[in-house]
């Protein structure tokens, strides 16, 4: 040890000696002493302020609240919200912190299991979770780096099934989704699954990733998938949907009018899992796939934000949409 602590040998000015590391920077207005960690602290303080305003997962709201929000906005948007309200009855927002896709997916999937009590689906997805674990191991991830996130997700999955000692109510699911120590861990679990799937099938994903970021697949996963707060794009959604074998519908609330004949319809994109090397896909193909197997995720282009803060342009915020059950004969 002492061979590296021969700091007093350096012929430098007194204030740059070893003790210089303990300078009280807060008392100093000198910008040269403003450290990266100060920037990060300030940033997380801003996030916490935002966090106080809006929970990770919001309350269920009628779709009319969306209408009220865009009241003075683009007429195309208002028209689209009307079209949406024919099919959907409610919306649940998530915090726009870069994790909103994963957070929306988490809540809507667990809520679906809680409401359907679909034991077979739980067994099915567990097989894919184990495949995801194997994928990460094969890619050389050390078990201890991801196993905590896996076991926390599996715990949630078990607990939404009723009749066990640790079963939870719907209220508790909402509470847990708002509790950072659970919510962020599940989000991180999805990030691991997504990253593993992309890297496992890197040949398939490579051209899409080149188009997005001009980096290698591995670099993309390291910088745009695994870190918390990195927004999700088409690539992420495709990979997660394939890895878990769960269909996802994303409805785009943007200002494009999508009908050539003058009418307005709402663009949506269905992510349907492609079964790769025997991954089990949900086969409850009964025609009412919309009744719940699809996690309805709505993506708004947040045009209000754009006008307020231009730095927020292109930010997409995912929310959860609820189908109007009256429109289906179940």
């Amino acid at each position: 040890m002492e061979k590296t602590q021969n700091y007093d040998e350096i012929p430098v000015e007194p204030e740059t000696e070893f003790t210089a590391f303990n300078i009280d920077y807060e008392a100093d207005d000198d910008w040269s002493n403003y450290k990266d960690s100060d920037v990060m602290q300030q940033q997380s303080a801003i996030f916490e302020q935002d966090a106080a305003k809006f929970p990770f997962v919001g309350d269920k709201e009628p779709l009319s609240s969306l209408e009220a929000e865009y009241k003075s906005g683009s007429p195309i948007l208002l028209e689209k919200i009307k079209v949406l309200s024919k099919e959907y009855s409610a919306i649940r927002r998530t915090r726009g912190d870069g994790n909103c896709f994963f957070r929306s997916f988490m809540f809507s999937y667990l809520e679906h299991i809680l409401e359907s009590q679909d034991q077979a689906e739980v067994e099915r997805v567990k097989i894919n979770v184990e495949k995801g674990r194997k994928t990460l191991q094969d890619l050389g991830y050390a078990d201890f780096t991801f196993e905590d996130f896996f076991s926390l997700f599996l715990e949630q999955l078990e607990s939404v099934l009723q009749g066990n000692d640790d079963s939870i109510s719907h209220d508790e699911l909402v509470a847990r989704s708002r509790d950072q120590s659970v919510s962020d861990y599940v989000v991180m679990f999805f990030r691991f699954i997504t990253s593993g799937e992309i890297r496992k099938r890197s040949e398939f994903f490579e051209p899409f990733i080149l188009g997005l970021s001009n980096t290698t697949v591995e670099q993309f996963c390291k910088t745009s998938v695994e870190p918390m707060g990195e927004e999700s794009d088409h690539v992420h959604i495709t990979a997660l949907c394939d890895a878990l074998g769960v269909t996802i519908r994303v409805v785009y609330l943007d200002r494009s009018s999508c009908d050539k004949d003058g009418g307005v319809s709402v663009n949506h994109h269905d992510f349907v899992p492609t079964p790769s090397d025997g991954a089990t896909t949900d086969t409850s193909d009964t025609g009412i796939i919309c009744s719940g197997m699809v996690s309805h995720v709505i993506c708004s282009d947040g045009c209000k934000l754009q006008s307020v803060k231009s730095s927020f342009k292109n930010i997409d915020i995912f929310s959860i949409l609820y189908l109007d059950m009256k429109s289906f004969n179940i």
Partner: peptide, 13 residues
């Protein structure tokens, strides 16, 4: 170093 800032993820040790 980016991984000590915004590019951090739990995959690092």
């Amino acid at each position: 170093l980016d991984i000590l800032k915004n590019a951090w993820s739990p995959a690092w040790t």
